[in-house]
Amino acid sequence: MKKNLLLWYRKYVHRPTLAFFRMPGARAFGGLLVVFGVIFVLSVLALRLYYIHPETGERLDTFSAVYTVFALLVFETAIPFPRFWLTRLVFLLVPFSGVLVLGNGLVRIGHTLLNREVWYRAMASTYKDHTIVCGLGKVSLRVIRWILDLGEEAVVIERDADNPMIPQVEHWGVPVVIADARRPEVLEGVNIRQAESIIACTNDDLVNLSVGLQARQLVPGIKVVLRMLDAQMAENVRSGFDIRTVFSIPEISAPVFAAAATRAPLDHAFTYTEGGEQGLVTITKFAVVEESPLVGYTLGQLEAEFDVAVLAHRQNGKFTLHPGNDAVLQAGDRFIVSASIEALNQIAALTPPRRELERYQQGRWPIQTHRPRRR
Protein backbone atom coordinates (compact mmCIF):
# COMPACT_ATOMS: atom_id res chain seq x y z
CA MET A 1 0.00 0.00 0.00
CA LYS A 2 2.78 2.41 0.97
CA LYS A 3 4.70 1.58 -2.21
CA ASN A 4 1.61 2.22 -4.34
CA LEU A 5 1.08 5.58 -2.66
CA LEU A 6 4.70 6.54 -3.33
CA LEU A 7 4.36 5.54 -6.99
CA TRP A 8 1.12 7.52 -7.28
CA TYR A 9 2.75 10.57 -5.66
CA ARG A 10 5.78 10.38 -7.95
CA LYS A 11 3.69 9.92 -11.11
CA TYR A 12 0.87 12.38 -10.51
CA VAL A 13 2.30 14.97 -8.10
CA HIS A 14 6.09 15.12 -7.86
CA ARG A 15 7.01 14.58 -11.52
CA PRO A 16 4.32 16.88 -13.05
CA THR A 17 5.29 19.61 -10.57
CA LEU A 18 8.96 19.35 -11.55
CA ALA A 19 8.00 19.33 -15.23
CA PHE A 20 5.81 22.42 -14.80
CA PHE A 21 8.74 24.39 -13.39
CA ARG A 22 11.12 23.13 -16.09
CA MET A 23 9.06 24.51 -18.93
CA PRO A 24 10.16 27.66 -20.80
CA GLY A 25 9.71 30.74 -18.62
CA ALA A 26 9.70 28.72 -15.41
CA ARG A 27 12.45 30.83 -13.83
CA ALA A 28 10.43 34.02 -14.24
CA PHE A 29 7.33 32.33 -12.84
CA GLY A 30 9.33 30.97 -9.92
CA GLY A 31 10.61 34.45 -9.16
CA LEU A 32 7.05 35.73 -9.29
CA LEU A 33 5.98 33.06 -6.79
CA VAL A 34 8.79 34.06 -4.43
CA VAL A 35 7.73 37.71 -4.59
CA PHE A 36 4.12 36.70 -4.00
CA GLY A 37 5.14 34.58 -1.01
CA VAL A 38 6.99 37.52 0.52
CA ILE A 39 3.99 39.80 -0.06
CA PHE A 40 1.68 37.21 1.52
CA VAL A 41 3.79 36.84 4.67
CA LEU A 42 4.32 40.59 5.07
CA SER A 43 0.61 41.20 4.54
CA VAL A 44 -0.31 38.74 7.30
CA LEU A 45 2.18 40.42 9.65
CA ALA A 46 0.92 43.90 8.77
CA LEU A 47 -2.72 42.96 9.44
CA ARG A 48 -1.80 41.10 12.62
CA LEU A 49 0.18 44.04 14.04
CA TYR A 50 -1.49 47.16 12.66
CA TYR A 51 -5.08 46.45 11.68
CA ILE A 52 -7.62 48.06 14.02
CA HIS A 53 -11.33 47.67 13.43
CA PRO A 54 -12.71 51.17 12.59
CA GLU A 55 -15.81 50.68 14.76
CA THR A 56 -14.90 48.30 17.60
CA GLY A 57 -11.17 48.97 17.85
CA GLU A 58 -10.46 45.23 17.95
CA ARG A 59 -7.30 43.73 16.49
CA LEU A 60 -6.94 40.57 14.39
CA ASP A 61 -5.42 37.37 15.70
CA THR A 62 -3.03 35.37 13.49
CA PHE A 63 -5.68 33.03 12.09
CA SER A 64 -7.99 35.94 11.22
CA ALA A 65 -5.11 37.76 9.51
CA VAL A 66 -4.28 34.72 7.35
CA TYR A 67 -7.95 34.22 6.48
CA THR A 68 -8.30 37.88 5.52
CA VAL A 69 -5.31 37.73 3.16
CA PHE A 70 -6.74 34.63 1.46
CA ALA A 71 -10.09 36.40 1.11
CA LEU A 72 -8.41 39.45 -0.42
CA LEU A 73 -6.86 37.21 -3.10
CA VAL A 74 -10.35 36.64 -4.51
CA PHE A 75 -11.51 40.24 -3.87
CA GLU A 76 -13.50 39.30 -0.78
CA THR A 77 -13.17 40.52 2.81
CA ALA A 78 -15.25 40.15 5.95
CA ILE A 79 -13.76 43.19 7.71
CA PRO A 80 -14.11 46.93 7.00
CA PHE A 81 -11.57 48.89 4.97
CA PRO A 82 -8.82 50.08 7.36
CA ARG A 83 -7.72 53.65 8.09
CA PHE A 84 -3.99 53.07 8.60
CA TRP A 85 -1.99 53.53 5.37
CA LEU A 86 0.02 50.30 5.72
CA THR A 87 -3.02 48.07 6.12
CA ARG A 88 -4.74 49.98 3.29
CA LEU A 89 -1.74 49.11 1.11
CA VAL A 90 -2.26 45.43 1.99
CA PHE A 91 -5.91 45.63 0.88
CA LEU A 92 -4.79 47.01 -2.49
CA LEU A 93 -1.57 45.05 -3.09
CA VAL A 94 -2.74 41.51 -2.24
CA PRO A 95 -5.56 41.31 -4.86
CA PHE A 96 -3.27 42.76 -7.53
CA SER A 97 -0.45 40.28 -6.82
CA GLY A 98 -2.97 37.42 -6.71
CA VAL A 99 -4.32 38.31 -10.15
CA LEU A 100 -0.77 38.56 -11.51
CA VAL A 101 0.33 35.15 -10.20
CA LEU A 102 -2.94 33.38 -10.97
CA GLY A 103 -3.08 34.84 -14.47
CA ASN A 104 0.50 33.82 -15.21
CA GLY A 105 -0.18 30.31 -13.93
CA LEU A 106 -3.32 29.94 -16.05
CA VAL A 107 -1.44 31.12 -19.14
CA ARG A 108 1.28 28.54 -18.51
CA ILE A 109 -1.27 25.76 -17.97
CA GLY A 110 -3.04 26.75 -21.18
CA HIS A 111 0.28 26.74 -23.03
CA THR A 112 0.93 23.24 -21.68
CA LEU A 113 -2.44 21.94 -22.83
CA LEU A 114 -2.02 23.45 -26.29
CA ASN A 115 1.61 22.39 -26.77
CA ARG A 116 1.95 18.75 -25.73
CA GLU A 117 5.45 18.51 -27.21
CA VAL A 118 6.80 21.12 -24.79
CA TRP A 119 5.11 19.34 -21.89
CA TYR A 120 6.53 15.93 -22.82
CA ARG A 121 10.02 17.40 -23.13
CA ALA A 122 9.67 18.80 -19.63
CA MET A 123 8.28 15.49 -18.31
CA ALA A 124 11.09 13.49 -19.94
CA SER A 125 13.69 15.61 -18.17
CA THR A 126 12.35 14.49 -14.76
CA TYR A 127 12.92 10.75 -15.27
CA LYS A 128 15.67 8.82 -13.46
CA ASP A 129 16.91 5.22 -13.80
CA HIS A 130 14.86 4.95 -16.98
CA THR A 131 15.40 3.47 -20.44
CA ILE A 132 15.64 5.79 -23.43
CA VAL A 133 14.17 4.22 -26.58
CA CYS A 134 15.24 5.90 -29.82
CA GLY A 135 12.97 5.27 -32.79
CA LEU A 136 9.34 4.21 -32.65
CA GLY A 137 8.36 1.26 -34.83
CA LYS A 138 6.82 -2.18 -34.57
CA VAL A 139 9.87 -3.63 -32.83
CA SER A 140 10.41 -0.76 -30.41
CA LEU A 141 6.69 -0.68 -29.59
CA ARG A 142 6.97 -4.23 -28.26
CA VAL A 143 10.21 -3.35 -26.49
CA ILE A 144 8.51 -0.45 -24.69
CA ARG A 145 5.61 -2.67 -23.65
CA TRP A 146 8.03 -5.22 -22.22
CA ILE A 147 9.94 -2.52 -20.34
CA LEU A 148 6.72 -1.30 -18.74
CA ASP A 149 5.57 -4.84 -17.92
CA LEU A 150 8.90 -5.40 -16.14
CA GLY A 151 8.09 -2.46 -13.88
CA GLU A 152 10.61 -0.08 -15.43
CA GLU A 153 10.11 3.36 -16.98
CA ALA A 154 10.84 4.53 -20.51
CA VAL A 155 11.19 7.72 -22.52
CA VAL A 156 10.89 7.71 -26.33
CA ILE A 157 12.71 9.89 -28.87
CA GLU A 158 11.10 9.85 -32.33
CA ARG A 159 11.85 12.07 -35.34
CA ASP A 160 8.47 11.77 -37.08
CA ALA A 161 5.76 13.81 -35.36
CA ASP A 162 3.12 12.06 -37.51
CA ASN A 163 4.11 8.54 -36.45
CA PRO A 164 0.78 6.69 -35.94
CA MET A 165 2.20 4.75 -32.97
CA ILE A 166 2.74 7.86 -30.83
CA PRO A 167 -0.83 7.93 -29.40
CA GLN A 168 -0.49 4.32 -28.25
CA VAL A 169 2.77 5.00 -26.41
CA GLU A 170 1.38 8.18 -24.85
CA HIS A 171 -1.66 6.18 -23.72
CA TRP A 172 0.75 3.97 -21.78
CA GLY A 173 2.01 7.08 -19.98
CA VAL A 174 5.35 7.22 -21.80
CA PRO A 175 6.54 10.70 -22.87
CA VAL A 176 7.48 10.99 -26.55
CA VAL A 177 10.02 13.67 -27.51
CA ILE A 178 9.96 14.67 -31.18
CA ALA A 179 13.63 15.19 -32.04
CA ASP A 180 16.78 13.66 -33.53
CA ALA A 181 18.33 11.29 -30.97
CA ARG A 182 21.79 11.80 -32.49
CA ARG A 183 21.97 15.34 -31.14
CA PRO A 184 23.64 15.59 -27.72
CA GLU A 185 21.29 18.31 -26.46
CA VAL A 186 18.33 16.01 -27.15
CA LEU A 187 19.87 13.20 -25.11
CA GLU A 188 20.69 15.67 -22.34
CA GLY A 189 17.06 16.81 -22.44
CA VAL A 190 15.80 13.32 -21.59
CA ASN A 191 18.23 13.13 -18.66
CA ILE A 192 20.61 10.58 -20.17
CA ARG A 193 23.10 11.16 -17.35
CA GLN A 194 20.71 9.52 -14.89
CA ALA A 195 19.29 6.93 -17.30
CA GLU A 196 19.76 3.21 -16.81
CA SER A 197 20.17 2.39 -20.51
CA ILE A 198 19.52 3.53 -24.06
CA ILE A 199 18.09 1.43 -26.91
CA ALA A 200 18.71 2.55 -30.49
CA CYS A 201 15.93 0.81 -32.38
CA THR A 202 15.44 2.68 -35.67
CA ASN A 203 15.42 1.02 -39.11
CA ASP A 204 18.78 2.60 -40.00
CA ASP A 205 21.93 0.82 -38.76
CA LEU A 206 24.09 3.93 -39.11
CA VAL A 207 21.64 6.05 -37.14
CA ASN A 208 21.56 3.42 -34.39
CA LEU A 209 25.35 3.31 -34.26
CA SER A 210 25.55 7.11 -34.17
CA VAL A 211 23.07 7.24 -31.28
CA GLY A 212 25.00 4.59 -29.37
CA LEU A 213 28.34 6.33 -29.81
CA GLN A 214 26.88 9.72 -28.86
CA ALA A 215 25.37 8.20 -25.72
CA ARG A 216 28.70 6.62 -24.76
CA GLN A 217 30.46 9.94 -25.31
CA LEU A 218 28.06 11.71 -22.95
CA VAL A 219 27.86 8.92 -20.36
CA PRO A 220 30.73 6.41 -20.77
CA GLY A 221 29.22 3.84 -18.42
CA ILE A 222 25.67 3.77 -19.78
CA LYS A 223 24.26 0.47 -21.05
CA VAL A 224 23.82 0.73 -24.83
CA VAL A 225 21.61 -1.67 -26.81
CA LEU A 226 21.69 -1.44 -30.60
CA ARG A 227 19.41 -2.97 -33.21
CA MET A 228 21.27 -3.94 -36.37
CA LEU A 229 19.85 -5.26 -39.64
CA ASP A 230 23.30 -6.08 -41.05
CA ALA A 231 24.76 -9.11 -39.24
CA GLN A 232 28.34 -8.33 -40.29
CA MET A 233 28.02 -4.74 -39.14
CA ALA A 234 26.65 -5.96 -35.81
CA GLU A 235 29.73 -8.12 -35.30
CA ASN A 236 32.03 -5.24 -36.28
CA VAL A 237 30.33 -2.97 -33.76
CA ARG A 238 30.71 -5.58 -31.01
CA SER A 239 34.43 -6.00 -31.62
CA GLY A 240 35.35 -2.47 -32.71
CA PHE A 241 33.34 -0.23 -30.38
CA ASP A 242 33.09 -2.40 -27.25
CA ILE A 243 29.29 -2.37 -27.39
CA ARG A 244 28.40 -5.95 -26.53
CA THR A 245 24.62 -5.61 -26.57
CA VAL A 246 24.24 -5.40 -30.34
CA PHE A 247 21.43 -7.51 -31.78
CA SER A 248 21.14 -8.42 -35.43
CA ILE A 249 17.54 -9.03 -36.47
CA PRO A 250 18.51 -11.69 -39.06
CA GLU A 251 20.61 -13.53 -36.47
CA ILE A 252 17.75 -13.52 -33.98
CA SER A 253 14.96 -14.35 -36.41
CA ALA A 254 16.71 -17.03 -38.51
CA PRO A 255 16.42 -19.82 -35.89
CA VAL A 256 12.78 -18.92 -35.26
CA PHE A 257 11.93 -19.07 -38.98
CA ALA A 258 13.78 -22.36 -39.34
CA ALA A 259 11.99 -23.80 -36.31
CA ALA A 260 8.60 -22.73 -37.66
CA ALA A 261 9.33 -24.29 -41.05
CA THR A 262 10.40 -27.71 -39.74
CA ARG A 263 8.55 -30.48 -37.95
CA ALA A 264 10.49 -29.79 -34.76
CA PRO A 265 8.14 -28.88 -31.86
CA LEU A 266 9.73 -25.49 -31.16
CA ASP A 267 8.08 -22.37 -29.75
CA HIS A 268 11.22 -20.25 -29.49
CA ALA A 269 14.84 -20.70 -30.50
CA PHE A 270 17.95 -18.56 -30.47
CA THR A 271 21.63 -19.10 -31.09
CA TYR A 272 24.58 -18.54 -28.80
CA THR A 273 28.34 -18.61 -29.24
CA GLU A 274 30.63 -20.11 -26.62
CA GLY A 275 34.31 -20.86 -27.09
CA GLY A 276 34.09 -20.24 -30.81
CA GLU A 277 31.28 -22.77 -31.22
CA GLN A 278 27.69 -21.89 -32.01
CA GLY A 279 24.76 -23.61 -30.35
CA LEU A 280 20.97 -23.48 -30.37
CA VAL A 281 18.77 -22.91 -27.32
CA THR A 282 15.17 -24.08 -27.71
CA ILE A 283 12.06 -23.47 -25.61
CA THR A 284 8.78 -25.36 -25.97
CA LYS A 285 5.56 -25.50 -23.96
CA PHE A 286 3.87 -28.90 -23.62
CA ALA A 287 0.35 -29.88 -22.55
CA VAL A 288 -0.12 -33.04 -20.48
CA VAL A 289 -3.13 -35.03 -21.76
CA GLU A 290 -4.89 -37.90 -19.99
CA GLU A 291 -3.55 -40.55 -22.39
CA SER A 292 0.05 -39.42 -21.97
CA PRO A 293 2.41 -41.88 -20.26
CA LEU A 294 4.06 -38.84 -18.65
CA VAL A 295 1.16 -38.57 -16.20
CA GLY A 296 2.62 -39.46 -12.80
CA TYR A 297 6.16 -38.46 -13.72
CA THR A 298 7.93 -36.09 -11.38
CA LEU A 299 9.69 -33.16 -12.98
CA GLY A 300 12.97 -34.57 -11.72
CA GLN A 301 12.26 -37.85 -13.53
CA LEU A 302 11.33 -35.92 -16.67
CA GLU A 303 14.62 -34.01 -16.62
CA ALA A 304 16.69 -37.15 -15.99
CA GLU A 305 14.81 -39.31 -18.51
CA PHE A 306 15.00 -36.92 -21.46
CA ASP A 307 17.95 -34.71 -20.50
CA VAL A 308 15.87 -31.51 -20.48
CA ALA A 309 15.63 -28.44 -18.25
CA VAL A 310 12.14 -27.69 -16.92
CA LEU A 311 11.78 -23.90 -16.83
CA ALA A 312 8.19 -23.57 -15.61
CA HIS A 313 5.17 -25.63 -14.58
CA ARG A 314 1.46 -24.78 -14.39
CA GLN A 315 -0.84 -26.96 -12.32
CA ASN A 316 -4.40 -26.21 -11.14
CA GLY A 317 -4.06 -22.64 -12.40
CA LYS A 318 -0.85 -21.98 -10.44
CA PHE A 319 2.23 -21.03 -12.46
CA THR A 320 5.63 -21.87 -10.94
CA LEU A 321 8.91 -20.65 -12.39
CA HIS A 322 11.84 -23.04 -11.81
CA PRO A 323 9.66 -25.67 -10.08
CA GLY A 324 10.99 -28.30 -7.70
CA ASN A 325 11.94 -31.78 -8.88
CA ASP A 326 9.27 -33.46 -6.73
CA ALA A 327 6.29 -31.88 -8.52
CA VAL A 328 4.16 -34.62 -10.15
CA LEU A 329 2.69 -34.18 -13.63
CA GLN A 330 -1.08 -34.49 -13.89
CA ALA A 331 -3.49 -34.41 -16.81
CA GLY A 332 -4.20 -30.79 -17.72
CA ASP A 333 -0.78 -29.54 -16.60
CA ARG A 334 1.47 -27.36 -18.73
CA PHE A 335 5.26 -27.34 -18.58
CA ILE A 336 7.97 -25.42 -20.42
CA VAL A 337 11.30 -27.04 -21.22
CA SER A 338 14.56 -26.21 -22.91
CA ALA A 339 16.15 -29.17 -24.64
CA SER A 340 17.79 -30.52 -27.75
CA ILE A 341 15.72 -31.11 -30.88
CA GLU A 342 15.99 -34.86 -30.32
CA ALA A 343 14.67 -34.61 -26.75
CA LEU A 344 11.81 -32.34 -27.80
CA ASN A 345 10.77 -34.84 -30.46
CA GLN A 346 10.81 -37.64 -27.87
CA ILE A 347 8.56 -35.70 -25.49
CA ALA A 348 6.27 -34.60 -28.34
CA ALA A 349 5.71 -38.29 -29.12
CA LEU A 350 4.32 -38.76 -25.59
CA THR A 351 2.29 -35.57 -25.09
CA PRO A 352 1.52 -32.77 -27.56
CA PRO A 353 3.11 -29.32 -27.54
CA ARG A 354 0.66 -26.68 -26.34
CA ARG A 355 0.39 -25.13 -29.78
CA GLU A 356 -0.53 -28.54 -31.28
CA LEU A 357 -3.19 -29.38 -28.68
CA GLU A 358 -6.05 -28.66 -31.07
CA ARG A 359 -4.52 -30.93 -33.71
CA TYR A 360 -4.17 -33.65 -31.07
CA GLN A 361 -7.85 -33.30 -30.15
CA GLN A 362 -8.70 -33.64 -33.85
CA GLY A 363 -6.66 -36.84 -34.08
CA ARG A 364 -3.97 -35.22 -36.20
CA TRP A 365 -1.17 -35.41 -33.61
CA PRO A 366 -0.88 -39.05 -32.50
CA ILE A 367 1.09 -39.91 -29.37
CA GLN A 368 2.44 -43.10 -27.85
CA THR A 369 0.37 -44.37 -24.96
CA HIS A 370 2.94 -46.77 -23.49
CA ARG A 371 5.37 -45.71 -20.79
CA PRO A 372 8.88 -45.03 -22.17
CA ARG A 373 11.72 -47.20 -21.02
CA ARG A 374 13.69 -45.68 -18.14
CA ARG A 375 17.41 -45.15 -18.51
Rank of each mutant, 00 (worst) to 15 (best):
M1F: 04
K3P: 13
K3R: 15
R10I: 15
Y12W: 05
H14N: 15
A19I: 11
A19G: 08
F20Y: 07
P24G: 04
L33S: 12
L33T: 14
L33E: 15
F36D: 06
S43K: 02
S43W: 05
S43L: 06
R48E: 04
Y51V: 11
H53I: 00
E55F: 11
L60G: 05
F63R: 13
A71H: 12
V74G: 08
P80W: 07
F81D: 15
P82T: 03
P82D: 02
F84C: 13
T87W: 09
L89P: 10
F91C: 08
V94W: 02
F96K: 06
S97L: 08
S97H: 09
S97I: 10
V99T: 11
V101W: 08
V101F: 09
L106F: 14
V107T: 11
I109D: 05
H111Q: 12
W119N: 05
Y120I: 14
A122Q: 02
D129P: 10
I132H: 03
V133T: 05
V133D: 04
G137H: 06
L141F: 11
R142E: 15
D149H: 10
E158F: 01
D162W: 13
N163I: 07
H171R: 14
G173Q: 06
P175N: 02
P175K: 01
V176H: 01
I178V: 03
I178G: 05
A181F: 02
R183Q: 14
R183W: 11
E185S: 08
E188V: 10
I192H: 04
R193G: 14
I198A: 02
A200Q: 03
C201S: 09
L209G: 04
S210C: 13
A215F: 09
A215V: 05
Q217D: 12
V219N: 06
G221A: 12
L226M: 07
M233L: 13
E235W: 10
V237F: 07
R238K: 04
S239C: 15
I252Q: 13
A254H: 08
V256Y: 14
R263M: 11
P265D: 02
D267R: 10
T271C: 15
Y272P: 02
E274R: 11
Q278L: 07
L280W: 06
L280A: 12
T282A: 13
T284D: 00
E290L: 00
L294F: 00
L294V: 00
T298W: 01
G300I: 09
F306E: 01
V308Q: 00
A309T: 13
L321T: 11
L321C: 13
H322G: 12
A331E: 03
D333F: 01
L344D: 03
Q346I: 01
L350E: 00
E356N: 08
Q362E: 07
Q362P: 07
P366A: 06
I367H: 00
R374P: 10
